[in-house]
Design a binder for these strands. Structure first.
Length: 318
DNA sequence: AAAATCGCCAACCGCTGTTAC
DNA sequence: CGTAACAGCGGTTGGCGATTT
């Protein structure tokens, strides 16, 4: 049966989201929580399909999303997880809670893939062995990684251990399920925050995300502050106020402050985090994490000769 | 300075999985 | 059990700024 695309309806807006739409969406979710996306366009009056709303939220507005450059640590994580899991971006993203699957996918496709290819050509020209770059160099068809695993077990273990080793771990980047596997080991992070602290560290508010967006938006506007964007901004402000988002002639910053109780617009650790505490990375399903922690254990446990164990177990996992 | 090319990334599309009825 | 609706995922595209020619 062929289902018509949800966005085929007339009057459904496509393309980039405006700050105004973001505000509407965030304030709605703030009130009702994420989920029931079908109801979002209806209840908010947004001319977007439910799917678009969900995507905007999960990829951009959701609390705790970290944007900008990937750290070395994150890069290693992605490389190794991609090697193990293939292009299962959502699963990979589950281990980098501050990054979205879309972000990781983009980073992989635009940067890492090329980098690794480059690396591969340089190493393969140096050595005909070419086995060092465990699986990261070529795209792996789904399901093929098991075989590569079998032939590269030691490399995988070593590489992943390196990538995840405590001494290389920065305090901010690993609020992931992997961390929980270390949580009993004091050595993992001597300044390991409490759970609440972790939450506030890891999960900034979605208001932050919008604030950042707006800040960049304002920063990037043409040199002349009277340029088009200013006009747009003015239009936005008037339209926002005319739609009852914020009464009066306040600035956008003020709009956000009043909307989220902000004072410090730069704050990365706002109290408003609590508004969304329960929404952090909802996609991390047990089905992904549980089996993988088994895999982690297998990969990271140096003591036992795990190889004998678990190929069958791992095969079961996926 | 203008045109062409490249690179990045937000958003869309189409498919699959899950759930409710 | 079959169907419809919804949610989620991965691949792809298109717009736009940066860089090169």
């Amino acid at each position: 049966m062929v289902r018509p695309p949800c966005c085929d309806k007339e009057g459904v807006k496509k393309g980039p989201w405006t700050p105004e739409e973001d505000i509407i969406l965030v304030s709605y979710i703030q009130e009702h929580g994420p989920g029931n996306w079908k109801a979002v366009p209806t209840n908010t009056g947004l001319l977007r399909c439910s799917k678009s709303c969900r995507l905007r939220w999960t990829n951009y507005l959701r609390p705790g999303i970290k944007r900008g450059n990937f750290t070395d640590q994150e890069e290693k994580m992605i490389i190794h997880l991609q090697a193990l899991l293939g292009n299962r971006w959502a699963a990979i993203a589950a281990y980098l809670p501050q990054r979205t699957d879309n972000d990781i996918k983009n980073y992989w496709n635009t940067y890492l893939k090329k980098k690794l290819k480059k690396l591969e050509t340089s190493t393969s020209s140096e050595s005909c062995l070419g086995h060092d770059d465990f699986s990261v160099s070529q795209p792996i068809a789904r399901g093929q990684w098991e075989r590569r695993l079998q032939t590269n077990i030691h490399m995988a273990k070593k590489a992943l251990s390196e990538a995840l080793s405590p001494e290389k771990t920065t305090s901010t980047n690993l609020c992931s399920p992997l961390e929980s596997s270390f949580s009993n080991e004091a050595s993992f992070c001597s300044t390991k925050p409490t759970q609440t602290q972790t939450q506030s560290l890891c999960y900034a508010s979605s208001a932050d995300n919008i604030a950042r967006l707006l800040k960049g938006w304002m920063k990037n506007k043409p040199k002349g502050s009277n340029g088009n964007n200013t006009k747009v901004m003015q239009n936005y402000e008037t339209s926002a106020s005319s739609e009852g988002i914020e009464k009066g002639s306040s600035t956008i910053s003020e709009n956000f402050e009043s909307l989220f109780g902000y004072e410090d617009f730069d704050s990365s650790n706002s109290d408003s985090t609590t508004l969304f505490q329960d929404e952090s990375k909802p996609q991390i399903g047990d089905s992904e994490i549980m089996p993988f922690s088994l895999l982690e254990k297998w990969l990271l446990d140096d003591g036992a000769c795990q190889e004998k164990v678990n190929l069958s177990e791992i095969n079961c996992m996926f």
